[in-house]
C-alpha cells in the first residue's frame, strides 16, 4: 500500500488522538469513515447501469460506454494530503480532519468512459434526468469541457456530476464522464504531472524544468481536437446512414 509523505505523516501524528496518531493506527481513523462512500458507490454503479441500459441498447452496434472501476475511492494518501494542504494554507478551510467525510465530494467516485464527445452529453443528460436518481440525490455539475483558456488550470476535460445523497446529507459521490481520449490523457497526466504537482504545488519550475507540464497541457488540446474531429466523422456517417434509410 502507498505510504504517506513525511509531511502528511507528521500532520496525522500531530492532529489525531490516540490510538490513531501512529504510523500503523491512522488508517483505522479514516477507513471506517469512508465505508459509507464505498457502499454508496457500488449501489450507484448498479443504478447507473440500469439508467443507461436503454442508451446502451440503442447504440448496441458500437462501443458506447464503459465504467472504469480502477479508482472508485480516493486514496487515503490523497485525502490526508488534501486536508493538510487546506489546513496549512491558512485560509478559512472548509475541509478538516474532523469533517472531511461530509465535506469532500470526491471521496467516492467512478468514471464513465465514452466513445464520442456526443456520448458524454447523452450520458450526462440521461443521468441528470433520471427520476430515480433525482428522487435520491441532489445534482451539482462541473463541466470542464467548456472552460475558457484563461480559466483553465489543467488539461482535464470531463463532465463531473456531484451527487449528494438526500437520505444522508453530507454523503457525496462524484461521477466523471469523459471520452476515451480524455481518459488516456488523464491516466498519463496523473503519473507525469498531477501527483508531482500535488505534493509540491509551488515548485513547477523545479519539478518540470523540461516544461513537461506545458507539453501535457498541449497534448490535452491536441486530443480534444481529435475528439471533436472524431465526433464530426461520427455525425457525417450517421447523417449519411439516416439519408439512406429515409430514401
Amino acid at each position: 500500500m502507498p505510504e504517506l509523505s513525511d509531511a502528511d505523516l507528521r500532520f496525522v501524528l500531530e492532529h489525531l488522538q490516540p490510538p490513531f496518531n501512529t504510523k500503523e493506527g491512522y488508517r483505522d481513523y479514516f477507513l471506517p469513515k469512508i465505508q459509507y462512500h464505498r457502499a454508496l458507490c457500488t449501489t450507484v454503479i448498479a443504478k447507473v447501469k440500469k439508467v443507461l441500459e436503454p442508451l446502451k441498447r440503442q447504440f448496441g452496434h458500437r462501443f458506447f460506454y464503459r465504467i472504469d472501476d480502477s479508482n472508485t475511492s480516493k486514496s487515503l494518501e490523497s485525502i490526508i494530503d488534501k486536508i493538510r494542504r487546506g489546513e496549512q494554507a491558512n485560509t478559512k478551510n472548509e475541509i478538516t480532519i474532523k469533517n472531511f467525510a461530509e465535506t469532500m465530494t470526491d471521496l467516492a467516485r467512478f468514471r464513465i468512459v465514452c466513445n464520442f464527445l456526443a456520448d458524454m452529453e447523452k450520458i450526462s443528460q440521461a443521468l441528470r434526468k433520471s427520476e430515480e436518481l433525482n428522487e435520491h440525490f441532489t445534482f451539482d455539475v462541473k463541466d470542464t469541457t467548456k472552460v475558457r483558456p484563461k480559466d483553465r488550470k489543467s488539461g482535464e476535460r470531463s463532465i463531473k456530476l456531484i451527487l449528494g445523497y438526500k437520505k444522508s446529507p453530507g454523503l457525496f459521490l462524484e461521477i466523471q464522464v469523459m471520452t476515451q481520449l480524455a481518459e488516456a490523457w488523464d491516466k498519463k497526466d496523473h503519473f507525469l504531472v498531477y501527483e508531482i504537482r500535488r505534493r509540491a504545488p509551488e515548485s513547477d519550475e523545479e519539478n518540470f524544468p523540461d516544461f513537461l507540464d506545458a507539453k501535457m497541457h498541449a497534448m490535452s488540446e491536441l486530443l480534444n481536437v481529435a475528439d471533436n474531429y472524431f465526433d464530426d466523422l461520427r455525425q457525417t456517417r450517421e447523417n449519411a446512414l439516416g439519408d439512406k434509410e429515409a430514401s
Binding site: Q35, Y36, A39, L40, T42, T43, V44, A46, K50, E132
Partner: peptide, 15 residues
C-alpha cells in the same frame, strides 16, 4: 448489487 435500495443492507454487511 442490483439497485440503490440495497445501500443500507450493503453498509450493514460491510460494517
Amino acid at each position: 448489487v442490483e439497485d440503490l435500495d440495497q445501500f443500507d443492507s450493503l453498509l450493514e454487511v460491510t460494517n
